[in-house]
Simulated assay, not measured.
Amino acid sequence: MAAVEPVVGEPAAVADLGDERALLVADVHAGIEVGLRYERGVELESRADERRDRIRSLIDQTGVDRFVVLGDLAHRVGAPEGRERDEIQALVAAVTERVPITLVEGNHDAGVAEAFADRLDVIGPRGGVLCGSGGSTGDGSGVAVLHGHTRPDPSLRSADVVCMGHEHPQVRLEDAVGGSRTERAWLRGPLKSSVFGNGDDPDGAGRESAEIGPELVVFPAFNERSGGTWINVEGESFLAPFLPDGLVAGDAYLLDGTRLGDFRRI
Rank of each mutant, 00 (worst) to 15 (best):
T96L: 08
L156E: 01
V104M: 02
G132A: 07
E167N: 08
A159P: 07
D118T: 14
A74F: 09
P154N: 04
R98D: 07
S141T: 08
E105A: 02
R54D: 06
R56E: 11
D160S: 13
S155K: 07
C131N: 10
T62E: 10
D72V: 06
S136H: 00
G41I: 07
V162L: 01
Y38T: 13
L73D: 06
T62A: 11
A117N: 09
R119K: 08
R54G: 10
V122W: 02
E114D: 14
G135V: 15
V171C: 07
C131H: 03
D49H: 09
A117F: 14
G124E: 03
D160Q: 03
R52F: 10
Q89W: 09
V68S: 13
G106C: 04
C163W: 01
G78V: 11
M164D: 04
G63N: 03
G82Q: 14
T137A: 02
T62P: 01
V95E: 13
R40Q: 03
E114P: 00
R126H: 05
G165M: 09
V69I: 12
G148W: 02
E50C: 12
D86F: 14
L91T: 04
L120N: 07
R40I: 01
V42I: 15
S158H: 15
L103E: 06
D53L: 13
D175L: 10
L70I: 02
G127D: 11
P100V: 11
A93N: 06
R83T: 14
G148Y: 01
F67T: 09
E174F: 14
A110F: 10
A79Y: 09
H149S: 09
G165H: 03
D118M: 05
V95S: 11
D60V: 15
L156A: 00
S133H: 04
A117S: 13
R56Y: 12
V171A: 14
L173M: 14
A159G: 13
T150E: 00
E174G: 05
H147N: 05
S133K: 00
E43R: 11
R47P: 07
E114L: 12
R83D: 12
L146M: 15
M164I: 10
G132W: 04
V112C: 04
R52E: 04
R157F: 13
Q170H: 12
I55H: 07
C163F: 08
A117H: 08
V129H: 00
R157T: 01
E50M: 14
T62M: 11
G165S: 08
V64K: 05
V112W: 06
R85M: 04
P169M: 06
G165C: 10
T62W: 10
H168C: 01
H166S: 00
L103P: 13
N107W: 02
V143K: 05
V69A: 15
E114T: 11
R151D: 01
C163T: 09
T96A: 06
S155Q: 12
L58W: 11
G111R: 03
H108A: 04
L58Q: 08
G124W: 01
Q61N: 03
R54P: 07
A110C: 08
H149L: 06
L130Q: 00
E45G: 15
G71W: 03
V122A: 15
E50N: 07
V129Y: 05
R54C: 13
R66T: 00
G71I: 10
V162H: 03
D160H: 10
V92H: 12
R172V: 03
G135W: 04
